[in-house]
């Protein structure tokens, strides 16, 4: 009893989330908001990063080529934090918190540090290695997501929902590395 629904209820709930967003606004995407948050921080340190401009479509230009691409849409989003996609991601965090307090999946004190599957494989004294690994993993995941132009939400779920060719291509790339690596990494050791 950890508050996690059966697979078909979980699937219907997730499916409803992806359908309702495209019905009412646009498909879900998360990883772009890491760039937007970075750009907000960077612009605080270096205010010349993002500047208002009449010559680009979004009204905002940037000295960084990535923020300036596609008519400066990322620059514009970072200049205006109260935009749909950024608020959506903040609300996602709120929703997960709320759910975990209302009978959803809520990690106990041990789980908060590292998941049980990590302890099973690497032992009880593995919190530091978990932190280091997860930090590196976060770097690789977001670099990969930006190179791909989206992550699990935007490419895999929203993309395949729309039958986007890019969504299938992304999912193929993800499975090619994720499944063998997870099997090698976590199935090693004979305590099963």
């Amino acid at each position: 009893m950890n508050g996690i629904l059966t697979w078909w209820k979980a699937g219907m709930l997730l499916g409803a989330a992806f359908f309702l967003t495209v019905l009412l606004v646009k498909p879900i995407g998360v990883s772009t908001q890491f760039v937007i948050f970075d750009a907000m921080l960077w612009d605080l340190v270096e205010p010349s990063l993002i500047v208002a401009s009449d010559t680009v479509k979004s009204g905002f230009d940037s000295t960084n080529a990535y923020l300036a691409k596609s008519g400066g849409k990322y620059a514009a989003a970072a200049a205006n934090p109260l935009n749909y996609s950024f608020i959506f991601v903040l609300a996602t965090m709120f929703g997960a918190w709320l759910s975990s307090r209302l009978g959803g999946d809520r990690p106990d004190a041990k789980e908060r540090v590292r998941p049980a599957v990590w302890v099973e494989r690497f032992g009880a004294n593995s919190s530091r290695s978990r932190y280091v690994t997860v930090f590196i993993a976060g770097f690789i995941v977001l670099y990969g997501a930006r190179l791909a132009g989206g992550c699990t939400s935007g490419h895999m779920m929203s993309g395949m929902m729309q039958t986007a060719v890019s969504g299938y291509l992304f999912t193929l790339g993800l499975l090619i590395t994720a499944v063998p690596l997870a099997m090698v990494l976590y199935n090693k050791g004979g305590n099963k």
Partner: peptide
């Protein structure tokens, strides 16, 4: 990028 993400996802 998907393949890179897969590495970090599995880790």
């Amino acid at each position: 990028g998907g393949a890179l993400l897969g590495v970090g996802f599995a880790l």
